[in-house]
Nucleic acid binder design. Structure first.
Length: 277
DNA sequence: GCCCAGGGATGCG
DNA sequence: CGCATCCATGGG
């Protein structure tokens, strides 16, 4: 794999451990469109237009360094997979979704997105987020930016309800009113336990959502978000009917350690995509 | 009509 | 602490 960064694009020839469709479709990001061999990806107020084939990926964007980090291009996924594939449970999942990369997205955007995600499905999550962008985000000409915190502070409970948040509308309103730009900046500098504590103090954020925010928004890899799919994976692999997600989270984080976040995404994508039990 | 979706808040013991 | 119950909404 060779990565070249030019003025307005990143060119990846002979991509290894990087599949655009897998990376976009594994549930870590909600603002994207795939059309054949092209994709458009949005983060904050930024946009990347991507064309991809078997031996080439082109990421066209004004913000090359942002999307270089966004797609985690500095990390050697070959090494990570080499370790994880020794795990007999994980091997088929890595075989299936070995082109997944863990995205480095904006923390605040992840807080809003994953509050919406609770007990929800990806189609509805995407629609709600699009609503918030088109009603509260800046008009960038041919798309809308993700609303800034101060823009979203103008939204009412009714607005969130109109966005399809259902019973999460009140939680979102409270959290958006409570947090400040300074809180978000400070959050990035805190040690893990304090980051976790802050996130759990927000309405609509529990253990699973907090772990997703840490993984996709703060680059923390020794967390293992447990949702309904991971719960199914766990029961499938252990031949149990465990429902205690705290226990499952603890066990899986202990098992995969600093590679938990990667393992979790391989599992999630494989089992959900194949709709296994 | 029931079940499910990248679960969390609340109340009760 | 652990545990049960409730929570909007749209698609299958």
């Amino acid at each position: 794999m060779k990565i070249e960064t030019l003025n307005n694009k990143i060119i990846i020839t002979n991509p290894q451990n990087f599949d655009i469709i897998q990376t976009l479709n594994c549930g870590q990001i909600f603002r994207f469109v795939i059309d054949g061999n092209n994709a458009v990806v949005f983060s904050k107020d930024k946009r990347a237009d991507i064309s991809f084939s078997k031996n080439k990926i082109e990421i066209i964007t004004k913000d090359t360094s942002y999307f270089y980090n966004f797609f985690d291009l500095k990390t050697d996924y070959g090494k990570i997979k080499q370790k994880l594939i020794k795990d007999k449970f994980l091997a088929p999942a890595i075989e299936y979704g070995g082109g997944i990369r863990i995205i480095n997205n904006d923390v605040y955007e992840m807080i809003v997105s994953f509050i919406i995600s609770a007990n929800n499905n990806i189609g509805r999550i995407k629609k709600s987020i699009e609503f918030l962008c088109s009603h509260f985000g800046s008009d960038m000409g041919d798309y809308f930016a993700f609303p800034t915190l101060n823009q979203l502070k103008t939204a009412t409970i009714k607005d969130f309800s109109n966005a399809g948040l259902g019973y999460r509308a009140e939680q979102m309103f409270e959290t958006i009113q409570k947090i400040t730009v300074q809180d978000i900046e400070k959050l990035k500098t805190l040690p893990l336990d304090e980051q976790y504590k802050f996130l759990l103090s927000l309405k609509g954020v529990g253990e699973k959502v907090a772990n997703c925010i840490l993984l996709f928004g703060l680059g923390v890899k020794n967390v293992f978000p447990v949702d309904t799919w991971i719960n199914k994976v766990y029961n499938n692999l252990t031949q149990t009917e465990e429902t205690d997600r705290k226990k499952i989270t603890k066990e899986l984080t202990a098992r995969y350690g600093n590679l938990s976040g990667y393992a979790q995404q391989y599992f999630f994508y494989y089992y959900r995509d194949n709709k296994l039990k």
